[in-house]
Design a protein around this nucleic acid. Sequence first.
DNA 1: CGCGATTGAGAACGCTCGTTCTCAGCGATG
DNA 2: CATCGCTGAGAACGAGCGTTCTCAATCGCG
Lengths: 190, 190
Amino acid sequence: MTPTAAAPDRERVIEAADRLFYAHGIQAVGMDAVRTASGVPLKRLYAQFPSKDALLVEVLRHRRSIWDAGIAAAAASATRPVDKILAVYDFLDEWFRTDDFRGCGFINAFGELGAVSPEVARIAREQKTDFQRYVAGLVEELGASAELAAQLAILAEGAQTTAAISGAPDAAIHARSAARILIDAALTEA
Amino acid sequence: MTPTAAAPDRERVIEAADRLFYAHGIQAVGMDAVRTASGVPLKRLYAQFPSKDALLVEVLRHRRSIWDAGIAAAAASATRPVDKILAVYDFLDEWFRTDDFRGCGFINAFGELGAVSPEVARIAREQKTDFQRYVAGLVEELGASAELAAQLAILAEGAQTTAAISGAPDAAIHARSAARILIDAALTEA
DNA sequence: CGCGATTGAGAACGCTCGTTCTCAGCGATG
DNA sequence: CATCGCTGAGAACGAGCGTTCTCAATCGCG
């Protein structure tokens, strides 16, 4: 058993669990389902992750890196800070139109387990504050206030829950145009 | 057993379950906990609600009426449509500073059970669209576009998740000032 | 070819929880 | 005062699930 040979197992399990947890909710998915979907037997699965909770933590970490990569890729096509900010909403728009979109995984996980698991609550909070910091960085480049950053982040969060629950994918478009107005207002005021 | 005598039981159960479900999550709360908190024995409890799912539906209905009443009360102190809109964010601000605030109960319930229970998903969606309609009505009185209404609703949703997960109660204040800017922009443009 | 370590498949265990059942106590009624 | 029906408290039941264990098949190595 070389340590490198175990890596594909880990990834397969995390990706399968992520897909299942996101699609059906965490508590609704049994370890047997993870095993079936990943093709990794229970024994190896528990060799990699001591418990379902530990697996969940890794799944959330994985999901965070996916999100970060998506945001970075969306920003890469833009040069000006303003466009990088607006690219966030374009990224959301694309995501919302995905077939298996079911809201923000962190918001969902927080709603389901945030009160019971401090670990889950912490990871969700970190993801949100990370995003807020990212937006704040871009806003700073713009020379606008920190309040604008908070408002832009709130718009993004609201778009996600609105798209998820109301099933309105155009929430991203509305958030985007609102963001543009807020940015313009902040810049002309300064 | 007069039918009117059963009413207090119903209310006590619904209120106790609502408090527990909201505080800890739905699946984390057993029927025994509901029984203990409400003081209503299991037998009567199951006489009123055929299952936990049925109880949950009533709990969500109850929560919806509480929300509606809160919004209505907040709007009552204002006369102009603009102030009624801004009153929504004042209401959120007050709510966010509550000790036991843990986000929007509908967003949480959707995240936990929306994928598994179409009933829960439907009730959450109805609550959100109801709120969107309410905002849309006020925006219409203002003579502004339907897009502004969508944007204002997104701000309210985003403030709720931000306050819940990031633990930032001032999300309501940021949403409020953003709302004011968007409203002003929409009105001067017209 | 033979033997021992490893592994995969799934059975088994223990716990939780939704739901139902039992039974002792009690109040009403004739 | 005796009896009958109802009620409350909690035991009991059955299912689901996280986690562990069994055991036969397999692979590597001498």
